[in-house]
Design a protein around this nucleic acid. Structure first.
Lengths: 200, 200
DNA sequence: GGAGTTATTGGACAGGTGCGCAATAGTGAT
DNA sequence: ATCACTATTGCGCACCTGTCCAATAACTCC
């Protein structure tokens, strides 16, 4: 039996959990499924993790945290405000990642019944809002865009993106990712006093 | 044993199911819970209903259909376009009904795993879109408001409302129903070329 | 080699799920 | 009173869930 670093073992369990969650949804993710994904037994999972709830929350935090970090890097303060805004939208909508979108929706619903998950979800939500808010404030300071209430504008735009993503993930044939980008661009142009077509 | 009209009995089962769904969420609604709500046995449920899936879908359709009918009546073509729009927003956000909002979110997530529910959800979704679209077109025809793409505008506004409702139901202390109304009004004013403050 | 420690297994446990079914209670017509 | 019929019960079935635990395997250190 290979003696692994316990932290690494835990890490691989969390990764397997995430994979199962993306494939089957949070509610349908069971200890035995995770064990099968790793090719081990269910008892082992509980040797490294105290409860299923903890495992699910940790897997979500890992995935969502990485998404956020990637976005923060892509939106980095180096380039032009308009371009940064465009990149933010692309990162947030996860348009290239079906299973990610599904998991995102799942989290909203499950959060109501899993306090730990709700807390994690809220933290992530606020971090995204802060990222966009800073971005808008930078643009305003540079005179590229305008908003009399950057925080409110950020919430409105994020809510629009949430709603569009909702349509996309649940009724994908009615609203496509391309429309999500187009419509969010138009809304942002209106909100920020940009000439129509600036973002697209 | 009182011999009831079978349709009435079925009706009461659906009503009980809806009550349990609103209280516990769709995923946690079981045959035994519904039976307990009615004060009968679980076997009786299956005497009138073939499967749990069917029961859940029917309960959702009933509740959502009634919501839509109420909204259509409230938005009736009698009054002024601006007032009709305001009433539409109020109806759609279900701001006065916490359990209704929770069920709405639940439906989105569950739809991914219950085909029948997904179909029902989609039908309802399109009906709401049509209602708002007609409303916008009426306003445009009357010269009260303007939009170069009524259908797109309707989708955008509904998506914004969805996103705001999402925030409201999951993180209620961050986004209040009042803000949902205010922000959706502002967005609608921008979209429809109305002077700021017209709706509020 | 053996001792001590950890990793891992596989199954037991109590509880829950949807569904089906034989048995019973009640009803209305004859 | 008898009959056919329906309503209703309550339990059984097979399956699934998270969690726990004794037994075993593998490793490290002496």
């Amino acid at each position: 039996m290979v003696r692994m670093n316990p932290d690494l073992r835990r890490e691989s369990i969390v990764a397997a959990t995430l994979a199962v969650m993306q494939r089957q949804g949070i509610a349908a993710t069971t200890v035995r499924d995770v064990a099968a994904e790793l090719g081990t037994s269910s008892g082992l999972i509980h040797h490294y993790v105290t409860s299923m709830d903890e495992l699910i929350t940790e897997a979500f935090e890992r995935a969502a945290g990485e998404d956020l970090e990637r976005a923060a890097a892509a939106v980095g303060s180096g380039s032009e405000p308009i371009e940064r805004l465009r990149r933010f939208f692309e990162s947030y909508t996860r348009a290239d990642d079906d299973s990610g979108m599904q998991l995102w929706l799942d989290t909203w619903a499950e959060a109501a019944r899993r306090p730990a998950l709700q807390q994690a979800s809220r933290r992530l939500n606020e971090a995204w809002q802060r990222l966009l808010c800073t971005l808008i404030e930078d643009g305003c300071a540079g005179g590229v865009m305008g908003s009399d209430d950057p925080e409110g504008t950020a919430w409105r735009l994020l809510s629009l993106l949430d709603g569009l993503t909702l349509q996309c993930v649940a009724h994908g044939d009615t609203v496509t990712p391309e429309q999500v980008m187009l419509w969010s661009h138009r809304a942002a142009e209106m909100e920020l006093g940009l000439p129509q077509g600036t973002l697209t």
